[in-house]
């Protein structure tokens, strides 16, 4: 599982598809940025599954039917049923919601909070050492462990999972932004702005933030992928969202004891989870290519 997002030096994916003749603007975009196209497309599909879950041939993912437990995949239950007789297909489709919400909300929160801390740290030396020591402290605790501990301490809910994972991811973004701020401060245009008497908030807002945005967005996609994986692991360990909630991690946790005899219970959610994380990573790599040409595919 990803403990942290790729650092700055991380390589971009090469273009997976061979160069081809431009055919219109959309096709051209797809060919120039296959990562964004494939990743974005897959995420869009997942988002549609999440939103349209009730209309995709699903039943109530929480409805128990102990008389029909552990049915193998069949026409009645496409992905089979679990130990309590719940329909796995329905639970997997509804599970998309949990993963996507956790991934996106954690990415957003960690980016915003991390950016705020990074900016403050980079600009106010007095606070810098204190903030960065705290960030180091959090960073020094493996984020899975930190999240498990935070979850053991709170009531299992999607909200708490988001908070727990966000706390473990903020330091990454904060350090990234702080590093960029320190670099930007030495740039002539910033020095010029300071010399011209630009007030600090305006300086940050007009000159610093826009220049840190692109890397933060790229970083956010990795945070998103990491968050989805940690969420699944938390559920898998029994420290995540309540088992009654259909989530991919919960389904795998339920199927775990039986994976020798009924491997399908683990297989379907594992497949969906892997594809979604893959999509987010592809998107992230694609965005990196597009937003930061210096790190492009090296042609």
């Amino acid at each position: 599982m990803s403990e942290f997002a790729l650092p700055e030096e991380a390589a971009a994916l090469p273009e997976i598809l061979p160069p081809a003749v431009r055919r219109g603007r959309v096709a051209g975009f797809v060919l120039r940025h296959p990562g964004i196209a494939i990743g974005g497309g897959l995420i869009a599909v997942m988002a549609v599954l999440a939103i349209a879950a009730p209309w995709l041939g699903t039943v109530d993912p929480q409805s128990l039917d102990p008389a029909n437990m552990l049915i193998v995949p069949s026409a009645g239950h496409w992905f089979g049923t679990d130990m309590l007789g719940r329909d796995i297909y329905s639970r997997v489709i509804y599970g998309t919601r949990v993963s996507l919400v956790v991934g996106f909300v954690v990415a957003l929160l960690a980016s915003v909070i991390g950016m705020a801390i990074g900016l403050v740290s980079g600009f106010f030396r007095a606070l810098d050492s204190v903030l960065m020591r705290i960030m180091d402290g959090i960073l020094a605790i493996p984020s899975i462990l930190l999240a498990i501990a935070l979850m053991a301490l709170t009531q299992g809910s999607v909200g708490n999972v988001i908070v727990a994972i966000t706390i473990s991811q903020v330091p990454q973004v904060a350090r990234l932004v702080r590093g960029m701020v320190l670099g930007l401060r030495e740039q002539p245009f910033v020095e010029a702005a300071i010399a011209a008497g630009t007030r600090t908030p305006r300086l940050i807002w007009r000159h610093i933030v826009p220049n840190t945005l692109a890397p933060v967005i790229v970083q956010a996609t990795y945070v998103c992928a990491v968050a989805m994986i940690i969420e699944a692991i938390l559920d898998f360990i029994g420290a995540g969202v309540p088992p009654i909630v259909p989530s991919w991690g919960n389904i795998m946790a339920e199927g775990r004891a039986l994976w020798q005899v009924k491997p399908f219970i683990v297989f379907f959610p594992a497949f969906f989870l892997s594809v979604t994380v893959l999509a987010v990573n592809l998107l992230g790599d694609g965005l990196r290519d597009m937003l930061d040409p210096r790190l492009g595919s090296g042609k």
């Binding site: 929480q62 409805s63 128990l64 130990m83 309590l84 299992g156 029994g238 420290a239 309540p242 088992p243 009654i244 004891a257």
Partner: peptide, 17 residues
């Protein structure tokens, strides 16, 4: 209801329903 006891957890879900 405990999340980590497979032999108790279903009881809570059934009562809830």
């Amino acid at each position: 209801n405990p999340t980590d006891f497979p032999s108790i957890q279903p009881f809570g879900e059934i009562t809830y329903a």
